[in-house]
Each structure stands twice: as C-alpha cells, then as structure tokens.
C-alpha cells in the first residue's frame, strides 16, 4: 500500500513538472502553448545528442535541457507568438491563432527527432548517472524518484507561492485578468511574456530531462502524450491556479493508478477523462479556478 502511494505520488510529481510551465503561460499571458510537449521532448533530445558525444552527469544534462528549453520557448515567443498577437484582429482571434501556431510549431522538432532517431526511443544511457534503488522498510524508492518528488513538489509549491506573494507574480496575475488595463498600469507585457516563456521553457526542459531519467528513455512523441494529460490537469485544477495544477496532477495520477491497480487497464483513459467531464459539469471553472476571473 505504501509502495503504491509512493508510486502514485511520483506520477503526480511528474505531471506537476510537465503541466506547471504550460499552466503558467496559459493562465498569465494567455498562450495555450500546444508546442509545450515538443519543447519538453526536444530539450531532452538535445541533451541526448550531447551525452552521446560527451558522457555527462545528471546536473550537466539537466542544465543543457533547461537552457535548451528556455531558448526554444523564447524563440517561439519572439518569432511566432508575439507577431501573431500583434497582427490579430482581436484577443479572441489571436488566442485561436496561437493554438494553431503552437500545433504547427510542435510538428517541426518532432519530425526532426523522429528522422534522427528513426522513431526509436532515446535516453541518457551514455552519460555517467546511474539509477540506484533503495529498500526502506520494504518500500523501494530510486534516486530518480527522490529527485522528481523534491523538484516537482518543491517547484510547484514554490511557483504558486511566488505568483501569490511577489510583486512580479501580482503583475503576471494582473496580465491574466486584463492585459489592456495592466498595460495602462505600467506593466511591460512583452517583457513579462518573454520572461514567462523563458521560465516555462526551462521547466519543460527540466521535466524532459528528469522524465527521461525516470522512464529510462522517451520517444519523439512522448511530449504529445503528456500534453493531453496536462491540458486535462489544468482544466481540472482551474486555469490560472498553480495550486490547481498540483491538485489536478494528484487527482489524475491517483485516479489512473487506482484504475490500473484494480482493473485490467482498459478503463484508465475513460475513468481519468470521465473525471474531467464531471468537474466541468459541476464546476466549469475547475476546482480552484475563480468564476469571476477569466485568467489569474
């Protein structure tokens, strides 16, 4: 039982790591970034290419993935998302174009990685890090699980508190509520948007590296698989709420875990996403979302 709870918590932390950056960008600067999954994958892929040449340890691999993710996200913001928003007739049309732009963008790194790897899995086995398993009171935990639990939950709670309590966090929340009014109040939206994308990209890179270590290998399509779950988590928790992301991640992870543990597996998607529909019917703004606020 304790083992199952630990495993489910680790899965929830994985979801937090992935969904955090996506939620932050959507809830503050209004970009539903469907390329988040490809940033996640491609950051890990770049780190993989480097590790193939130079055997590196985990900190260096994570650093490469985070820097790669941050640079890719900033480039996307600067070259694609920002111009789309500038040219959009109205914010609503702009948001739709951003979604389409994100989907189109995501295909490029995925195709590149597919071609390069022949769609085979890739990982960091050429590096120097080795997964170690420890047994404590009959419960097995690996060093990667410990790192994911600490980093995932730490970053989730830390980001939520920062958004809630800091001045910059307040500015971001203001952007989420009303970009025009917040601009009149002196908030530099382009600069904050760029910084938010940078942070989100770095988080995607961090998630990419850690999940590759945890799963031992990922494929070019792994990001897209997680993207749908992240989308569900954000809706479940409430768009704009970082604590909502944590809560949504735990609900989805524990629901999936329970279904897989007690059924033959066929119901896992139906039950998990059935929960999403249920929440949408009962509380359309999500569990921790605020009804009167569009995005906070």
């Amino acid at each position: 039982m304790v083992q199952d709870l630990l495993n489910a918590t680790t899965l929830a932390s994985i979801y937090v790591l992935f969904a955090l950056g996506m939620s932050l960008v959507w809830g503050t600067i209004g970009i539903l970034n469907f390329a988040h999954g490809s940033i996640f994958m491609f950051s890990a892929f770049i780190a993989y290419l480097v590790v193939q040449q130079i055997p590196l340890g985990m900190p260096a691999v994570i650093a490469i993935a985070m820097v790669s993710g941050a640079l890719i996200a900033v480039a996307m913001q600067y070259l694609v998302f920002q111009p789309i928003m500038k040219k959009a007739k109205n914010p609503h049309a702009g948001e739709l174009q951003l979604v389409i732009g994100g989907i189109g963008l995501s295909a490029i790194p995925i195709s590149f990685a597919q071609r390069s790897t022949l769609s085979n899995p890739f990982g960091f086995s050429a590096g120097t890090f080795e997964t170690q398993a420890y047994t404590i009171g009959g419960v097995i935990i690996t060093n990667v699980m410990i790192i994911i639990l600490i980093v995932g939950l730490g970053l989730g709670v830390g980001t939520a508190l920062w958004i809630r309590n800091s001045k910059k966090g307040l500015a971001l929340r203001a952007l989420g509520v009303d970009p025009e009014v917040s601009a009149m109040m002196g908030i530099d939206r382009p600069k904050l948007a760029l910084a938010t994308m940078l942070y989100s990209g770095a988080l995607a890179g961090l998630a990419g590296a850690l999940l590759t270590y945890y799963f031992n290998s990922i494929t070019s399509e792994s990001g897209d698989t997680l993207l749908l779950k992240a989308f569900a988590i954000i809706i479940l928790g409430g768009v704009g709420s970082i604590f909502g992301v944590i809560l949504g991640s735990f609900i989805l992870a524990f629901a999936e875990f329970a279904v897989l543990l007690y059924t033959n597996g066929s119901w896992v998607t139906a039950v998990s996403f059935g929960l999403l529909f249920l929440i949408l019917l009962i509380r359309p703004q999500g569990i921790l979302g605020k009804k009167e606020v569009r995005r906070t």
Binding site: Q3, A8, T225, G265, V268
Partner: peptide
Amino acid sequence: STGLPNSTQDFKAPISK
C-alpha cells in the same frame, strides 16, 4: 492480462499488481 493505452508512460501501477 492488462491492456494499456499508448499514452501510458509510467507502469508502476500494473507492475505493482
């Protein structure tokens, strides 16, 4: 016999079973 969708990435639950 446990059937899992291709979206499954963490197998700790079926392995536990």
